[in-house]
Each structure stands twice: as C-alpha cells, then as structure tokens.
Simulated assay, not measured.
Amino acid sequence: MQGGENHSLGSDFTLLGLFSSRQASLVFFPFLVSIFVLTVTENVLMISLIHRDPRLRTPMYLLLSHLSLMDILHSSNIVPKMIADFLSGSRTISFAGCGLQVFLSLILLGGECLLLAAMSCDRYVAICHPLRYPMLMNEKTAVFLAGGAWLVGLLNSTVHTASVLLFPFCGPRAIDHFFCEVPAMLKLSCADTSRYERGVFVSGVIFLFVPFCMISASYGRILHTVLQMRSSEARKKAFSTCSFHMVVVGMYYRPFIFTYMRPRSYHSPGQDKLLAVFYTIVTPTLNPVIYSFRNKDVLAAMKTMLGSHFLPEK
C-alpha cells in the first residue's frame, strides 16, 4: 500500500452531495422532501387502486403496479439518505451501505427499463391488434413479463455490484455524487477498469438501447394506427396519451443512456448528478401522473375509493 492511499474494502465512503454549498442544499431541501412524500403517496395510491378495484385488474395496470413499486423502492433507496445527511450534517456512508445502494439501484433501474418496454408492447397490442389482445396479453403474460424484469434486473445487479465492490479504492474515498452510483465510484478506483467498463457498455445496450428502440418502434406503430382512425376525438386522445408517455420515456432513458454508455473520461460530476436527478427523483414522481391519473378508469376507481372512506353509508 502506498502512503496516503486506502485500499481496504471495509472503509467508509463520503457522499459529497448534489450541491457543493450548504446554502444551495438548504434551498433545495424542502423541495426534495416534498417530492419524496409526493412520490411515495402517488405510487402507494396507485398500487392500492389497482389491487382494490376490479376494473383495474388488467395486464396494463398489473404492469403499472410493478412500475409503482419500483419507483417507491428506487426513491426510498436514495432520497432518505440525502435527507438524513442534510439533517445530521454527516455525509458518510458505510462500505456495506454503499454496496446496498448500488445493488438496489441497479436492480430497479434495469428492471424498470425492461418493464417500460413491456408496457409499450402491451399498448401496441391493445391499439394495433385489439382483436388479438385477449389472447396475447393476459394476467399470466403480465406476471411473466413483470417477473422477468425483476429477475433479469437482479442478475445484472448482482454481477455489477460484486465487480464494482471488488475494485481497490484509493485516496479519501469521496464520491462526488448524491448516492453511490457505478460511474462515480469507478473514478475512485486505482485499478484498470477498462475491461469492466466494456461490460457496462454491453449491459447498457441490453437494458437501455434495445428497450428504448422497442419502445420507440411500438409507439411509432401506435401513432401510425392512431392517425388512421376516423374519429378525430379518438385520434386526439390517443395522440395525447402517446406523447406524454414518450416524454417520460425520454426523460428516463436519455439521461440513463448518457450516464452509463459513455467512457469514464467523458464524465463530469456536475453533469452526472444533474442527469441522475431525472431518473432517480423526477421520473418516479411523474410516472403515476402520466401513466395512470390521466386515465378515466383510474379516476373512477379513485372516486369509488374516496367515496367509500368519506361518504356515510346509507
């Protein structure tokens, strides 16, 4: 071991946070807490509605319930630590805690990429092949797709987390990020990580580029079918829905692709943190609104649930 370096696996890390100044963190803190509470509330409500209301027990909403669960876990994996660090003034995270953040983050990010692709395929079959929808998409198919997303995300995360944590880390072990993310951690390694980075690129192709192409192709076909509809009202509604979905997909995939499919030398801490905000904080908040709460079936289920709780029984 060279002087001044720390290669031990058990040492703590320091998270430098989203902002370098305490004043900027103080301004952002109320917003962060509000966003976290809103994210958890929205997604818990979505899961409750889907499991309570028979109208929402369809493949599309079953996939949405898994998306909501992933968003809750993803936000809870990162934001509470940020809040605790701000309140305590300590930015330290243990080696095990950092490994757990990486492990959960990769499961949920990878699983959500595959789940969003499955959801786009569901919408493609429903709109472009409605007569074949009951045969191609049913509850068993939805469970299989959701389970596959979780399982493949778990396998991918296990490999990458084990690989990253086995690298020797040098110097002060200060991660210039607001959570333990692979690209930020690789910058601290004193070993050659070029071979591993090629593996990350391959995973990026599987989990990011391929699903993004599938989603784009699905919505492209959906828009083509929508434009051929005779009803202008149906065209307007379907086009509005697809447009909002593609906005969310773009906000999630593009920053994620930009972060994980670039060489380490092209990364800058400020840019990586800004990009990560979109797929770790912003998108989990927007997903229930875009995918669910603009839907008349969801709104009807919400009215039914609220009525059963607050209206007196006759």
Rank of each mutant, 00 (worst) to 15 (best):
G99P: 02
D85S: 14
R91F: 04
R198V: 08
Y133V: 07
V210A: 07
R198M: 06
S65L: 05
L154M: 09
F256S: 06
S88K: 01
G10D: 14
H224L: 11
F95E: 08
S20T: 13
V33G: 01
L208A: 11
A84F: 15
D12A: 11
P54H: 12
V210T: 06
R173T: 06
T41L: 15
G110D: 15
F36K: 00
Y279P: 01
F178V: 00
L306I: 08
V249D: 00
E42R: 01
L69S: 07
S265V: 07
G10S: 15
S292T: 07
V298Y: 02
D122H: 09
V102H: 08
G110W: 08
R294D: 00
F13N: 04
L311N: 01
F28I: 07
L26T: 13
Q228I: 03
V102N: 07
F258R: 09
C170E: 02
I175T: 03
S157G: 04
H74N: 13
T193E: 00
Y266T: 05
V282G: 06
V249R: 03
F169C: 04
M82I: 14
F36G: 02
A184H: 00
S189I: 09
D192L: 02
P312Y: 02
T141D: 14
V40H: 07
F31W: 15
A174Y: 05
L38W: 07
V289H: 11
A234R: 13
F103Y: 15
M229S: 13
T92K: 05
S240V: 13
Q228M: 10
E197S: 08
Y133H: 15
P80C: 03
V200G: 01
P255W: 04
L151Y: 03
I47E: 13
F207A: 05
L26Y: 12
S76D: 06
H74M: 15
A118P: 00
E112D: 12
V248R: 10
H267Y: 07
T158S: 09
I290K: 09
H309Y: 10
R195L: 10
V44N: 01
I257S: 01
L87E: 10
Y219K: 01
R91H: 09
L115T: 03
D297T: 08
I107Y: 05
L115R: 02
L56M: 14
F29S: 05
M1Q: 12
G89Q: 02
M185V: 04
L64V: 10
L114S: 03
V298A: 12
V249A: 12
H309C: 11
S68V: 04
R235K: 04
F86E: 08
S232V: 14
L49T: 09
K236Q: 15
F31G: 11
R52S: 11
P134E: 07
G111A: 06
T158W: 12
H66T: 13
M60T: 13
F212C: 09
V159W: 15
S163F: 12
T41Q: 06
I281R: 10
I93N: 07
L274N: 01
L151V: 03
R230D: 15
T193V: 11
I175R: 05
R173C: 05
Y252Q: 05
S243I: 02
L73K: 10
G17T: 08
S243T: 06
R254K: 11
L131K: 14
C190R: 05
